[in-house]
Design a protein around this nucleic acid. Structure first.
Length: 153
DNA sequence: GCCAACGTTGGC
DNA sequence: GCCAACGTTGGC
């Protein structure tokens, strides 16, 4: 079982949206970056867990934990001309983009903030914290996962 | 295949 | 709103 960190802008889809969704489950769609697509398609498995990270907001940080409840399947938004994520090049026969389904596992009472994470020596080499990292999904090492869990209030 | 221009992400 | 970093695009 592997660990991941998944970024989302809370004004677009935050952990509160997930908490209010049917079965507290949603399809993690809209990924349009090939590196992230490859990770989703090839490496993310049912049963994995991920931190739900809030980005592009006043207080960036980890808001909770989700369970990966399905392996990758073609991203339906790519087939939908009315979606902002529509991609005419992605077809049912040859899908380009993929998504996984995630279910809320835990919502933290308060965020583990980005400055807090940066302050932890044990997390120095975490992908999220590397200079120039912009990937919306990054792997998290087991040791990092455990270390961060200990920071949750 | 190179590379400049442009677009996006995301912290600050 | 600014800017660094990086991905993508497209002309050549």
């Amino acid at each position: 079982m592997a660990y991941w960190l998944m970024k989302s802008e809370p004004t677009v889809f935050g952990i509160d949206h997930l908490a209010g969704a049917p079965r507290q489950t949603t399809s993690w769609d809209g990924v349009r970056n090939y590196q992230v697509r490859n990770m989703l398609r090839d490496d993310v498995r049912q049963g994995d867990q991920a931190f739900f990270y809030h980005s592009g907001c006043a207080v960036p940080g980890i808001a909770g934990i989700v369970n990966i409840v399905s392996a990758a399947h073609p991203d339906a938004t790519a087939f939908d001309p009315s979606s902002e994520y529509y991609d005419a090049k992605s077809t049912f026969a040859e899908p380009i983009w993929y998504s996984v389904d995630v279910q809320l596992a835990q919502r933290f009472a308060t965020l583990v903030t980005l400055p807090q994470l940066r302050g932890e020596k044990a997390l120095k080499s975490m992908k999220l914290l590397q200079r120039g990292n912009r990937l919306s999904i990054t792997p998290v090492r087991a040791a990092e996962w455990v270390h961060i869990l200990a920071l949750v209030p």
